[in-house]
Structures are given as C-alpha cells and as structure tokens.
Simulated scan of single mutants.
Amino acid sequence: MQKSKDRRLKWLLHLTLLGTLLTIVVILVGAWTRLVDAGLGCPDWPGCYGRLLVPDSEHAALRHPDVPLDASKAWVEMIHRYIASLLGVLVISTVVLGWPLRKTDQYPWRISVLLLATIVVQGAFGAFTVTLKLWPQVVTLHLLGGISVLLLFFWLHLRLKCVVRQKKLSTKRSSIWWGLAAGLLVIQLGLGGWVTSNYAGIACQGIPACNGQWWPNMDISEGFHLTQTVGPNYLHGQLHAEARTAIHFIHRLGAVVLGLSLVILWCRYRHHPALFRALNIVIALFFLQVVLGAANVLLWLPLWLALIHTAGAVLLTVSMLWAWWQWRLRHENVVVAQSDSYLTHHAQSM
C-alpha cells in the first residue's frame, strides 16, 4: 500500500513539473500567435473551418466564404490549440492520479481541483477569444488565466514535495509587503495584457519620455473603458492614438511602482541567505524586463524581442512565487528550530 502511494506521488511530482514547463510553452506559443496576428487564423472553435486539421482553400471558402484562408496563420493557431489541449489532458491526469491520495495528510487536493477548474475556464476563454474576435477584455483575461494555470501547477509541484518529504508548511500569514508586491505584480501583468490586446506596444515613442513629453497627451477614460462594444473585429485594435498612449504610459508607471515594492521587499529580507538569493533573482528579472521593454520601444517592437519580453514576465512571476515559497520554508525552519530548542532545554531541566 505504501509503495503504491509513493509511486503515485513520484508520478505526480513528474507530471506537475512537466505541466509547469508545458504551461510556459503554451503561454509563449499563445503570445507568438497574437504577435503574428494569427489569433483569428481559424474563424471558428475548436476546429478550423469545421475541421480538426487546417483544410484546403476550397473547403474553407465553402465553410466561411467571408474569411479567406491564410494557411500559415491557421496552422499557428491550431498548433497553439493542440498544445493547449495536451495541457488539459495533463491536468486531468494529475487529478485522476491524485484521487486515491485526496485524504492523505497534507495532500493538496484542493489545489488540484482548483487547477482543473481553472483550465476549464481557460478553455472557455480560448473559445471566446475567437468568437468575440479578439475582444481585449477576453484576450487579457486569457493571458492572466494562463499565468494562473502556471502558478497553480508550480505551487502544486512544490506542495507535493512537502508531502513526499513529510514536511508541514507554516500557516503564518504573509507580511503586508509580500501581499503588496504580489498584488502590484498581478496588476502589472494585467496592464501588460491590456497593452498587447489593444496594440499599444509602441504608442509611446522614446525612453524615458513618451512622445517627447514627460506627461504626454492621453485619453485615460477611453484607454481603460472596459465596456467596449462586443462585435467589431479587434485585430490591430480599435482605439485612437491618445487612448493607446494612456495604456502604454500607465503600464510604464506600473513598472516603476512594482519596482519600488520589490526593492522594499529585497531590503526587508536581504539578511536571510535563502531569501536573499531568491529575491536577487526576482530583482534581476525585473530589471531585465525593464531593459527589454525599453528595447521593444526603441526597436519598434520586433517579434522576437516582444516574445522574450513575454517570457521575462512569465519567469518573473514564477520567481516571485519561488521567493515566497522560500519565505514560507524559512519561517517553518525557524519554528522547528525553536521547538527543538525548547524540548532540549526542557529535557535538561528535568
């Protein structure tokens, strides 16, 4: 019985690690799909012109005469769907394999169920991205959903390590600084998604000024108007220049605020070796993101550099979760050390 349990846990460790890596691939392929304007390469969902493989032009014309087939873009979109479907299978396999262990002490069953629910919602957003013709709200939520799947897979993997090692995590609540930095990171990710979904990547020219001004002409109300009409084709965006400038400029301001919060976090925990190393990675990735963002503006958003910028955001998010995990482990080690010290002192006094 114990051997079967250990074997399942070993398989789950491998599956969750694979799921973490595959989710990164899905996010990056999705970003590439958006960057090459292939998001509507197939006008329907889940098939492409009613087929599971990209059809020929004759069939496409009969199925959707109003949407001419661009085979290269259609294949980019379908490859993204195939990989995303594989990720869904991996999530289901993780839940099924973990079912017999759901009552095991410390087994993260709720995280597994939440991961399954999130991937289902993510699939729905994938469909809405196509059927609502790249509506920016859905595109942004689809990106955040992908990040959520990634973090849940990674967190599940870390928690399973604790089960294997029979180690309990600290239940102490995080400090306000962790919560502030995490909240600002989520907002910045959302702003980044809003920039890309509204095609505002080069709405601000120049670094650090924007279009030659420190406070450029902007239309913030229109740029962050979240009830845009459903129906138009949002490929290449529908907003005017000043609205896109507002989106881009607020994203820059968000980076400044996020950077300050991360520096405060680093200063607060720099004296702890494990946290110091983890937070060094976070800070390094953040400043790399700043450099990549500036390069994207100065070089007029080359596709490969925009993709690297997306990868940087993914790695920054994962490294932030890793740093928080190190903080949880550090606190647990402190508690265990204090408990051992108390027991030793009590034994000696007897």
Rank of each mutant, 00 (worst) to 15 (best):
L316H: 01
G223R: 01
V335A: 11
W194T: 01
Q205F: 10
P136G: 05
T94A: 15
A38I: 00
D340Q: 14
Q213V: 06
I111H: 15
L22C: 05
V230S: 08
L285S: 03
Q228W: 14
L28E: 12
Q166E: 15
A124N: 06
H225E: 15
L53Q: 12
L13E: 12
S319T: 06
A274Q: 13
V314R: 05
L160E: 00
Y82M: 08
G183T: 07
A243D: 02
Q338S: 11
G201P: 00
V25W: 01
P100N: 11
G126N: 06
C42M: 06
G179P: 00
V113W: 15
H225M: 14
L151W: 05
Q289K: 09
P232N: 02
R102V: 08
L21G: 08
V91A: 13
R34F: 06
Q326T: 04
I176D: 07
R7I: 11
K5N: 09
P273E: 02
H309M: 06
L301T: 12
G123S: 11
V290C: 03
N280D: 07
D56V: 09
L156R: 00
S197P: 03
Q326H: 11
V164P: 01
G98R: 00
N280Q: 12
Q228F: 07
W322E: 03
I147S: 01
Q228K: 15
V314F: 02
K167Y: 11
L265Q: 03
S319A: 13
V282D: 00
W45Y: 13
G88M: 07
E242H: 11
K172C: 07
T20H: 01
T23K: 03
R330D: 13
L262W: 00
K172D: 14
V256D: 08
G293T: 04
S57I: 13
K133V: 07
T310W: 05
G47F: 09
W215K: 09
P55G: 04
I281S: 08
R7A: 15
L141V: 14
L18M: 08
L316C: 04
V334C: 04
R34S: 04
A203T: 04
L239D: 00
I27T: 02
L275G: 00
L265G: 00
F128W: 09
L301W: 10
S4M: 13
V263N: 07
H331I: 15
H14Y: 10
H331W: 10
A60D: 06
R8P: 00
A31N: 03
V314T: 13
V54C: 06
